[in-house]
Design a binder for these strands. Structure first.
Lengths: 364, 364
DNA sequence: TCAAGACTTGAATCGACAC
DNA sequence: TGTGTCGATTCAAGTCTTG
């Protein structure tokens, strides 16, 4: 395959493994994979109020037994490893139904696990029967192609995103709901397990550079592709179901990439601010690229994906940039910077007020 | 082995698998296992030649370290399964180094995973080199002996422990530090990975009953045994290292069991004495002829002297009539039907609550 | 227009027992 | 081993409806 043939920035319609085989080796910098979970559900589940839970009963999640699932898993993971560059990394997400098989096979194929990341769901489905603990998380395995990979980890950006303390292996994020959820023509959810964009935002900011090529072999509604495009990464999506392919192409087309300047993140050590400002960026409440100003609209700055601000070629936290631009020794960025909503100028601080005691809460 | 020979409430000094072989089948209600984490893999796994790792299928056998660990894991897990009663459960804890192998092998041996529980460490060690996310959690796999086990889960106790909302799969607990940490004669920590008692407390309260037999095949400093004794559970510990055995025997001897009264937890409603609805009619607390309605006051029914309800020419139990009038397959009449008292609409269930711990308690 | 309440929903391996 | 009966069981977010 020549360079021109490489299907960059596309959603490919086809079966996962065979489509991966058509791509050249060492061509992908990062893979995010959300494979079927191999749920083995026994029957209909009802809530205590007798309403029926719309669960996952799709054909793509049907496997006869563990060994069939293992074969499938080994196949696509082996292809994934071939496609990765020497220093590339892979993310694979799953629940207890499949994640142990995923992890064991990854180790056997030579991947080098870097972290297991726990996505703590802000609003999980309860356990209606009261027979187990609320299944309130999913697990992501983050691995390098091999033990000697010089993989990309934007440590400082992660630290900035988390109020200047190291980002931990447990992430607290809400499910994908509301307008973010891709709907079919009947207004119903198109895909049963669409992942939130905030999750992909953090994954891509953590482990890729601007211009990297990101592959999602189970592309679904195109969340990975959409977030990658927004953040200035190239993407390749593979999806079997034509309905998902069509919807994700529309979704990606509607996405606007941030300018290179605005997609950059904190390159070196910095100081930053208790609700981390980066959380609002990550969740799209104040998207990267948003322009902020002071109350008199004299000073301006633009929000970066890791929650830093850029203005006049300089970069820093909301506090530091406020202090720097005004020449003051210090500055409370939460009350100094304003953003516009519905023609109204609002201080950043209002974001914290609006979200207090809700999804951004991260306590024990 | 006769009943008298069963080494109840003891720490046995010996190798894990062979010592388990000396115990009788179906003798253990719950197992907590904290096996070696296989952290030493890095050196042996490092490969200078990338192409060797590339050959996927053929390389399986070359990962001798994984297969040695897997053999060991399969051996002790198979013994664990033999020792468990039909309705017994097992907890196994690990990190990303070994937990995927643990989980996959458990599934292959026939264990039925109930939850994966994330222990979120309140005070984890930071990642000093800034090359990864802070490894801030460990994973516990909770599994029944098989898919048809009628395992013990003290749902109400867990809910009470968590401020009256369902306990989730992510637990936030501090590491074992301070006086709880067992020290050697030099005042240094005796064991590198001593688990906090709070973790075992929650595990045992969740999944065992008073008087159950709890086994820890990797007993270490005896945390499982100590907490089990305190909570009125029997214990068996297996530990290879004589120093750990000695320290844990002293530790367990110093432990005082709570009185039966103080060790009790919120009972499941299933285990509360049943009070027939008719009892309340009989005793005049809800006289025959009383009109009931649903919460929206849309449906109505009248109480008969035998505790049946009548509505629209039909007659049945509180449950059956609720199901029939709503078209649902089933219905809990205790929470579906309401009656009026002093202008207030109250669910039938409140009658049971009000009368609990009184004379009706003996009616079941 | 706003506030309060009602309604909807999410990767879920989700009874026990008598006959 | 199947079938019917009894009865236990939900939380956080977001959207929609009503006053």
């Amino acid at each position: 395959m020549t360079h021109q043939d490489f299907p960059i920035d596309q959603i490919l319609c086809g079966e996962c493994v065979s489509t991966m085989r058509s791509l050249p080796s060492s061509s992908i910098d990062c893979i995010f994979a959300d494979p079927p979970y191999n749920l083995q559900l026994r029957g209909e589940l009802r809530r205590p109020d007798e309403t029926v839970v719309d669960g996952v009963d799709d054909d793509w999640d049907k496997f006869t037994d563990y060994s069939a699932y293992d074969r499938f898993t080994r196949d696509w993971l082996a292809e994934a490893r071939r496609l990765l560059t020497h220093d590339g990394t892979i993310w694979a997400i799953g629940s207890y139904h499949n994640v142990f098989r995923l992890g064991a096979i990854m180790q056997e194929l030579g991947f080098w696990i870097l972290n297991d990341i726990v996505w703590r769901k802000a609003n999980p489905m309860p356990n209606f029967r009261g027979r187990r603990f609320t299944n309130a998380h999913e697990t992501m395995i983050w691995a390098a192609r091999g033990p000697d990979s010089k993989y990309c980890f934007n440590y400082q950006a992660m630290k900035t995103l988390n109020d200047d303390v190291q980002m931990r292996s447990d992430w607290y994020l809400p499910l994908c709901t509301g307008n973010e959820r891709v709907k079919n023509v009947h207004g119903l959810k198109l895909h049963p397990t669409q992942k939130p964009e905030s999750l992909l935002h953090r994954v891509l900011i953590a482990s890729t550079r601007s211009g990297d090529v990101v592959l999602d072999p189970f592309s679904g509604t195109g969340t990975t592709a959409a977030v990658a495009k927004r953040l200035g990464r190239h993407f390749v999506g593979i999806e079997r179901h034509p309905d998902y392919v069509e919807a994700s192409r529309l979704r990606v087309d509607a996405e606007q990439p941030l300018s290179e300047e605005h997609a950059a993140v904190t390159p070196a050590k910095r100081e930053m601010p208790r609700i981390p400002f980066g959380t609002f960026v990550e969740q799209g409440m104040l998207p990267a690229g948003t322009e902020l100003c002071d109350r008199q609209r004299r000073l301006r700055a633009v929000v970066s994906p890791d929650g830093s601000l850029v203005s006049g070629g300089q970069r820093g936290s909301i506090h530091k940039m406020g202090a720097q631009l005004t020449g003051a020794p210090s500055c409370n960025g939460w009350t100094f910077w304003y953003f516009e909503r519905n023609g109204e100028l609002l201080p950043l601080d209002i974001l914290r007020t609006e979200s207090s005691q809700t999804k951004l809460r991260n306590a024990g």
